[in-house]
Simulated assay, not measured.
Amino acid sequence: MVMNVLWREGRCPASRVVDQVAKHSDWHFRTVKTLLRNLVAKGFVGYEVDAQDSRIYYYTPLVDEEQYLQQERQQFLHLYYGGDRSSLLAGFLQDGKLSAAEAEKLRRMLNSSAEEE
């Protein structure tokens, strides 16, 4: 949610990020500020301090959405599945039914991936 605001708004003050996130969630402003701090630490977001008011921080996305999602997927895969993609996929398949269209799309992706190896 925080990254979506930054991708949409570009460079913006923390207060604007908090306001935009609050429209879609009940997150406290401290939660949003903590998320911003973590995103900065991971290198996804940069910030500048206002030259006239050191209490105002402007945040800017440093990665595009696909780069961010790829990194988050990899972290999730390694954290929860030890890097085993087949276990991750099997878990998702066991959790819910796929539509025929989803199954066909997945089949094509798997075939394409296997052919590349």
Rank of each mutant, 00 (worst) to 15 (best):
S86R: 15
Y59F: 11
V18K: 05
T34S: 12
S112W: 04
N111Q: 13
R16V: 00
V32S: 08
R108I: 11
W7S: 06
R37Q: 03
R108C: 15
E115L: 07
L39V: 01
E102L: 06
L39H: 05
R37H: 04
Y59S: 05
A41P: 04
V2R: 14
V2Y: 02
Q67T: 13
R55D: 01
H24R: 15
E9S: 14
R73I: 09
L89N: 07
V49C: 10
S87G: 13
M1E: 12
N111R: 14
H24T: 14
T31E: 13
G82S: 11
D50T: 00
R55V: 00
F29W: 05
K97W: 03
L98S: 12
H28C: 13
R30C: 09
R55S: 00
F29Y: 14
W7M: 03
I56Q: 01
V21G: 09
V21C: 11
Y68R: 15
S25Y: 05
E102W: 08
A41V: 06
L98T: 13
L35I: 11
A41M: 08
V2E: 05
D53S: 06
C12Y: 00
R55K: 11
N111K: 15
Y80P: 01
A103I: 00
V32A: 06
Y57K: 13
K42C: 01
E102T: 05
A51R: 15
F29G: 04
T34C: 04
R85Q: 05
T34D: 05
R55H: 05
V49E: 06
M109G: 11
V21T: 07
D64A: 03
L98P: 15
R37F: 04
N38Y: 12
Q20I: 00
L39A: 10
V18S: 12
R85T: 01
A114I: 09
Q75Y: 08
D50A: 02
Y57C: 05
E116Y: 11
H28R: 14
P61S: 13
P13E: 00
S86L: 02
E117I: 07
A90Q: 11
Q94P: 04
S25C: 10
V5D: 03
Y59E: 02
Q67R: 13
V45D: 08
G82I: 00
D50H: 01
E72C: 15
R11N: 08
W7H: 15
F44N: 11
L77C: 02
W27P: 04
R108F: 04
F76W: 13
L79E: 07
V21M: 08
E116R: 15
R107Q: 12
M109P: 02
Q67E: 06
G91P: 08
S15H: 10
S112R: 14
Q75K: 12
C12W: 01
G91T: 09
A90Y: 11
A101N: 14
F92Y: 11
L6A: 05
G96V: 00
D84E: 09
S112F: 11
Y47C: 10
F44I: 04
G82M: 00
Q52D: 10
V32K: 09
S87K: 14
R55F: 00
R30E: 06
L88D: 03
H78T: 10
L62S: 08
R73M: 09
R16T: 02
P13K: 00
D26M: 14
G83Y: 02
E66C: 14
E72D: 13
V49T: 14
D50W: 01
Q75V: 07
Q71M: 14
Y47R: 09
